[in-house]
Design a protein around this nucleic acid. Structure first.
Lengths: 100, 100
DNA sequence: TATATATTTCGATAAACATAGAAACAACTT
DNA sequence: AAGTTGTTTCTATGTTTATCGAAATATATA
């Protein structure tokens, strides 16, 4: 993941509603969570929610899986792992490196 | 740090130029790095750079210290640590929680 | 095939952001 | 006090983002 990809992921996570959406998806685990379920949880209009979800997807933070009429959002954990690794490696948040 | 504060920090980090600025500041350690030094490194016009720096500062990611004519930017490591902690705690990127 | 359910796309509008030249400000030097 | 250096603020412009109702699409069921 290069600096542009990391920035893109951080940017998409950097919105209160999207961060809550992402949190909800991550908490749901590998089976994912239905869009409608997120909508109930957060009380966001469908069209707005849909845009936020596709923003997160465009950064590679989640993928979608259809089951009948419902679409499930599934976290792409590896993406967040790579973002955090970037922050730790490139922007050392390691105690040893930074605090001595 | 609540969800809004974390989102704010992520948002400000979520821009390629700002992420590079932040990286440069973090790498400089506790003595910080001069604005003019960053400007040389990245080749960004002063006014643009100044805006980006104040964006990062507004999220608590850095502070500034003047020494004569030069302003030094110093990373507020704790802020990033808290952001990463939020991602790890609230958006579990922990192997044990997420991968089993 | 008609209707219901789940979600996205369209369309429009307001707000926020990104960019950067020019002017201003701050602090040092002569 | 005048000039120099470092940085910010002003001003302007174009671009992107956020929002959400209404219409469209996709799938299921009667």
């Amino acid at each position: 993941m290069n600096v542009n990809e990391v920035a893109k992921a951080l940017k998409e996570l950097g919105h209160p509603t999207r961060l809550l959406i992402y949190k909800s998806i991550v908490k749901a685990g590998y089976q994912g969570v239905a869009v409608g379920n997120i909508q109930e949880q957060l009380g966001v209009p469908g069209s707005t929610l849909s845009h936020h979800i596709s923003s997160l997807a465009s950064a590679g933070l989640l993928s979608q899986r259809r089951e009948g009429r419902t679409l499930f959002c599934v976290a792409q954990y590896q993406c967040l792992v790579e973002v955090v690794n970037f922050l730790q490696d490139e922007c050392c948040i390691d105690e040893v490196q930074c605090r001595e």
